[in-house]
Amino acid sequence: MDVQKALLNGVITENPTFRLVLGMCPTLAVTTAAENGLAMGLATTAVLVGSNLLISLLRGFIPSKVRIPAYIVVIATLVTAVDLLMKAYLPALSSALGLYIPLIVVNCIIFARAESFASKNPPIASILDGIGIGFGFTLALILLASVRELLGAGSVFGVNILGPDYPKALIFVMAPGGFFSLGLLLAGVNRFLDYLHRRTGGLI
């Protein structure tokens, strides 16, 4: 398992948003602006790497029958600790990302990777998997958020692209618009990835 393989896996083959369809709730909530998508993606990646590492280190100790509560406790403790430390020592960063940190606990991606990867693989591989999946998640968030921000506010990352007269389709920065955009993107991205798969003879 090397970095390149982990990245390819996380961005394409097992993209958590478009392939695994995990973490839909925070995805829909956060992607109202590209900037928020980026922030949430990075925060989730950090937590994912940390939790993957911890679960991997503890994989011999956690009994399989109670692995679900055990994983949740580990993840929640990690996230809460990170949240408190950020509030205390990195206030600027905390007020920018602060809303998202508690949301990460309920992000299924963290739990799914703990269950399907970290509990069965050594620490280094788990870290790499965390980085790869986290990166894939971040890209997916940025893509969805850019679409929603563009249609709903005329800008991407705060930069106004469609001009001041663009009639903003407000629904896209609200929940229903999130569902529409995500649904259509799911269809489109998967169509494209299937095409890539056929064209590269199964490489991707």
Partner: peptide, 25 residues
């Protein structure tokens, strides 16, 4: 026993972090 141990360690860690950060927060 194992589960209790995990919970206990988590509780201690959080308690420690909380007391450490409560004043700055």
């Amino acid at each position: 026993a194992r589960l209790v141990l995990i919970m206990a360690v988590a509780a201690v860690l959080l308690g420690f972090t909380s007391s450490l950060t409560s004043a700055p927060i």
